Simulated assay, not measured.
Amino acid sequence: MRRELGRYAVAAAVFGVLDGLWLGIVARPLYDSQMGDLLAVEPNVAAAVAFYVIYVFGITWFATRPALAAESSRLALVSGGVLGFVAYATWDLTSLAVIEGFPASIVAVDIAWGTVATATAAFVTYAVCRRVPALR
């Protein structure tokens, strides 16, 4: 259990830093200009925390864990990418389908980001865990 929590902590740190940079610096102007009034003035912190807790679990369970078992960095990268693609496509395409005014211009960018960020988080988590004996 300690090993799994350590892996989870690594994935949470990696994905948290990546997504924080993305949301706070890189994509902020794009989201502000394209989503405007759809964005909450203040984010729902409980919902954000719930997302990160669940999503990081998904990264560790569906990408990092199998990659470590197979000793395959490629599996971490590919599984993370597939998870990110499916998860972000689910959100973006559902939003496009049911939210009036959801900008289509955000969809491809956000799906690409989710794919890259999740693949990177899974790959880096795999690499760190392979180098730390207690996390193998």
Rank of each mutant, 00 (worst) to 15 (best):
M1S: 14
M1F: 13
R2K: 14
R3V: 08
E4F: 14
E4R: 12
G6D: 06
R7P: 00
A9S: 14
A9K: 08
A11T: 05
A11H: 03
A13P: 00
V14W: 04
F15Y: 11
G16K: 11
V17L: 14
V17F: 10
L18I: 14
G20W: 05
L21N: 03
L21R: 06
L23A: 11
G24K: 10
G24E: 07
R28M: 09
R28A: 13
Y31M: 12
D32T: 15
D32P: 02
S33H: 13
S33M: 11
S33Y: 07
G36T: 11
G36L: 10
L38I: 07
L39A: 09
L39Q: 10
A40E: 08
A40V: 03
V41L: 12
V41Q: 14
P43C: 04
P43M: 13
P43H: 06
N44L: 06
N44E: 05
A46R: 09
A47G: 06
A48S: 13
A48W: 03
A50R: 00
F51M: 02
Y52I: 00
V53F: 12
V53E: 04
I54T: 15
I54L: 15
V56N: 03
V56Y: 02
V56S: 02
F57V: 15
G58L: 08
G58V: 02
I59E: 00
I59R: 01
T60W: 05
T60D: 02
A63M: 09
A63F: 07
R65M: 11
P66F: 11
P66S: 11
A67H: 07
A69T: 12
A69Q: 12
A69K: 14
A69H: 08
S72N: 11
S72F: 12
L77I: 12
V78I: 15
G80Y: 06
G80D: 05
G81F: 11
G81W: 11
L83V: 06
V86R: 02
V86I: 14
V86G: 02
A87M: 08
Y88L: 02
Y88I: 01
A89S: 15
T90L: 12
T90M: 10
T90N: 04
W91L: 14
D92H: 05
D92N: 12
L93M: 12
S95C: 12
L96Q: 13
A97Q: 00
A97N: 00
V98D: 00
I99N: 03
F102Q: 00
S105F: 06
I106P: 03
V107P: 00
A108T: 10
A108H: 09
A108C: 05
V109A: 13
I111A: 03
A112E: 01
W113S: 07
W113C: 07
G114L: 07
G114S: 07
G114T: 05
T115A: 09
V116N: 06
A119F: 10
A119I: 08
A121Q: 06
A122N: 04
A122I: 05
V124S: 06
V124D: 03
T125F: 04
T125L: 07
T125D: 03
Y126C: 09
A127W: 12
V128W: 01
C129D: 07
V132W: 10
P133G: 10
P133W: 09
A134G: 04
L135D: 01
